[in-house]
Structures are given as C-alpha cells and as structure tokens.
C-alpha cells in the first residue's frame, strides 16, 4: 500500500507532463482533443477536504495553462469541476453509500457508477473549456460538436487507463 499523498503527487506530475508533451499534439480534424489530465481530479480520494480538492485542481489547471499559453482557461474549468464534485457524489450515490470505498475509481465503484461520474465531470469540463476558448456565440454548434467528440475521446482514454492499470498493486 503506497501512501496516497505520494501516489497522488506522482499522478499529478505524470498526467500534467503527459498532457503538455504528448496529448496536446494528439487529435483528429481539429474536433477531437483529449484532456486526460483531469483524471487526477476524478481520482482524488473521497475523504480529501474540499479545500485541498479546490487548491490542487486550481494548481493543476494553472500548470496546464502555463505550458499551453492559454491564460487561465484550464484553471477556470478545473476549479469548476472540483467545486461540483461533491454535488455529483450526492446526486449519484450508490445503494450502499460510500462507506467502504476510498477512491472513486472504476475497480472499487463498479463500471456503471464510474462511467456516469466520468461523463458528467468530463463533459462539464470540456463544455466550459471550449466555450471560453472560442468565446463567441457564432460558432456555438461547432463548439458543441467539439465538446461532445473530445469528451468521447477523453472518456475512452480514462476508461482504458482504468482497465489497464486496475490490476497493479498500487490501486
């Protein structure tokens, strides 16, 4: 059992670096852009105090902004999904409550719960991010298409990474 602080710090650094060096250059037809780094916010333990969830999400968004010259767009979207995270937990409470689980990952929560949770978080994040990036209503439908397709791409990567890594001893 690895200390959750160390494993989460490692995940923060790894996902941020992966995003800015590799995933920012991955995409298709200017419509599919994956933003896998928000997996860090998704996988913070249930018990993390809201203060730290907000602060870490803010820092994560700020570091992505720094590397991609996007002036606070990622910070706004990340802080927002960090804020609504506890509300999503309340809305989609599983039957037994959250007593036995530590981390909201796919293995401990089961696929239906985790995928619902991931869809809400990823779609909200992408919707805010792309609308701030474009910042004009004349391209609204293209932005919506970009949001939906990129969310799909991010979700596939999140679910794949959960299945690929769920057998390791770390989780």
């Amino acid at each position: 059992m690895i200390n959750p602080i160390i494993s989460n710090t490692f995940r923060f650094l790894f996902l941020a670096l992966l995003q800015v060096v590799v995933l920012n250059n991955v995409g298709l037809f200017n419509l599919f852009n994956p933003y896998l780094y928000i997996l860090f916010i998704l996988l913070l333990p249930f018990e993390t105090a809201p203060f730290f969830v907000l602060l870490f999400s803010f820092l994560l968004g700020l570091s992505i902004d720094t590397f991609s010259s996007t002036d606070g767009m990622h910070t706004i979207a990340c802080t927002f999904i960090a804020f609504i995270r506890p509300m999503i937990f309340l809305i989609i409470t599983p039957r037994g409550g959250y007593e036995h689980q530590i981390t909201p990952n796919l293995k401990s929560m089961g696929a239906p719960w985790f995928i619902t949770y991931a869809i809400i978080m990823v779609f909200t994040h992408h919707l805010i991010l792309f609308n701030i990036e474009v910042f004009r209503l004349s391209e609204f439908f293209i932005t919506l298409a970009r949001t939906a397709l990129s969310s799909l791409f991010t979700l596939v990567l999140i679910i794949l990474s959960q299945y690929l890594l769920s057998n390791s001893k770390k989780r």
Partner: peptide
C-alpha cells in the same frame, strides 16, 4: 469551499 471557489475563479478570470 464556496468562497474559496469564488476566490480562485476570480483569480483565473482576471488572468484570462
């Protein structure tokens, strides 16, 4: 947490 959220968003928007 709500006030912290507002505070952080204000910082982010002013950067933007």
């Amino acid at each position: 947490s709500f006030f912290l959220f507002l505070f952080l968003e204000v910082i982010a928007f002013s950067m933007l």
